[in-house]
């Protein structure tokens, strides 16, 4: 048996934690900074991250701070458009006639970096995986499949649909799902 222990959903205009809305004054990318200052504040590397990583980082930060939240044994995330927003930003640094490729942007041209950022922040040395899928439903199937074949030790998965394809346009839904013998 598997249960959803915690759940957070963030859109450019709303934050919902375990079904309860959290009030914010900002919207879009600025709201992510507002949430960072409120829930983390001590991790300046946040400002080096691309939006996809900021989004995943903040969602994980809020959900993993919840009381009696279980430490994840795996971080499994997915989206539909990979790292396209940051790919576009990197492309701007290699435009013809203005060719200065930015290593700090290039490193974020892989979507799985967000799982790495979360692993570093929360010292998670379990699995990190990133998939490109059609829909959040497909991620759910993959996570259920993975949970169904492991009997011991029972896994706790931080699973998230984390999408950002344009500035100020993003969506994350992150859940802690854990195995139980009930």
């Amino acid at each position: 048996m598997y249960k959803v222990q915690k759940e957070i959903e963030i859109t450019p205009t709303s934050v919902i934690l375990n079904g309860q809305p959290i009030a914010t004054t900002e919207t879009g990318d600025k709201m992510l900074v507002e949430l960072y200052r409120r829930y983390a504040g001590d991790y300046p590397k946040f400002f080096k991250m691309d939006t996809l990583c900021r989004l995943g980082f903040i969602a994980a930060e809020i959900v993993l701070r919840e009381p009696d939240c279980q430490q994840p044994t795996a971080v499994i995330m997915a989206n539909r458009s990979a790292s396209i927003k940051n790919d576009t930003d990197y492309l701007a640094t290699i435009s013809e006639g203005n060719y200065y490729p930015s290593p700090a942007l290039f490193v974020y041209t892989l979507p799985n970096i967000v799982t790495g950022e979360i692993a570093i922040r929360h010292h998670l040395q379990g699995e990190t995986s990133f998939y490109i899928l059609e829909s959040p439903k497909q991620l759910e199937q993959l996570v259920n499949c993975q949970l169904s074949i492991v009997n011991y030790p029972l896994p706790t998965v931080l699973a998230g649909w984390c999408e950002c394809s344009k500035p100020d346009e993003f969506y994350v839904k992150m859940r802690i799902i854990y195995g139980t013998t009930d």
């Binding site: 080096k48 200065y100 490729p101 930015s102 290593p103 700090a104 490193v107």
Partner: peptide, 13 residues
């Protein structure tokens, strides 16, 4: 290390 690489690029740019 990434900052170091970014500084190299800053010097060039």
């Amino acid at each position: 290390s990434i900052d170091a690489l970014e500084l190299l690029m800053l010097m060039d740019r």
